[in-house]
Amino acid sequence: MTALFEMKSLTKNYWQTETQMECTYLFSDLTATIDSSERIALLGKSGQGKSTLLRMLALLDNADSGEIRFNGVQAKDMDTRVWRMKITYVAQQAVMLPGTIEENLKTVSKLHNETFNDKHAQKLMKDVGLESIDWAKKAADLSGGEKQRIALVRSLLLAPSILLLDEVTASLDQQSKAYVENLLIKWSEVEKTAFIWVTHDLEQAKKVSERIWYMENGTLAVDCKTESFFEHQHSFSDSVIL
C-alpha cells in the first residue's frame, strides 16, 4: 500500500557563512514515511534543521538531493499550489494578513474561489477558544497567541491532508495551548489529517503524537512509536535536552 507521504534520502547543504568556501550539510539522508492521520512530533535541539525540513516539505525551500512523494506522486510532478493545499505549513511566527480577522479567515476561500463556510469557521474559532472575539477587529491589533490560533484556523479551513506545525504553541499560554492541542488531536482523528509537529516540549510531544522523529547530528536518529521513545529515551542520546 502506498504511504500517504514519503521522504527519501533528503539532504540539505549550507555554505559556511564566514568563508562561503566550505559546504557542509545541515542534514542528510532523511528517509521516512507517514500514513494517513498519523500524528508525529519532530524533536531535536535547535539548529538541527527541523524548521528547514518542514519548509522543504511545504516546498517553500528546496532540498539539495532526495525526493518527497505525496500519495506516490513526486513533488516535482505535482502542481506546487495543489501540493501546498494538501501539505500545509503553519509558521512559528503567525503572520496576519492586512485587514480584519474575518478577512484573514476568508483568505483561503478567496484564494481558491470557494464559498466561505461561515459555520465551519465559527466552530473552529470556538475550538481554539476564540468564540467571543469580534471578527471585525483588525488582525494586526491581536495578541501573539490570538494571531497564532487564527493562523491555525486559517490553515485548517484549507482541509489539508498533512499539517506541518512549526512550534505553533510556543507563544501561547497554558490554556490556549491546551485548546490547540485538543483541537489538533480531534481534527486528526475526525478529518484523518496527519501532522508533523515541531516542538521542544516533551510533555506536549507525549500528549499529541503517536510517533516521534528525533533529529540529531544531521540525521533522523530516531523514528519510533511515542511510548517506545519515552520508555527508552535515555538510550537514544546522551540526553534528550531540547
Binding site: A58, L60, R81, V82, R84, M85, T88, Y89, V90, A91, Q93, V95, L97, P98, T107, V108, L111, H112, A151, R154, S155, L158
Partner: peptide, 16 residues
C-alpha cells in the same frame, strides 16, 4: 516576506 510566504503556503499563485 512572512506575508508572501503565508499566502504561498495557503496555495496562492505568485500574483495572489
Amino acid at each position: 516576506k512572512g506575508e508572501i510566504e503565508t499566502l504561498l503556503a495557503l496555495g496562492a499563485t505568485s500574483r495572489q
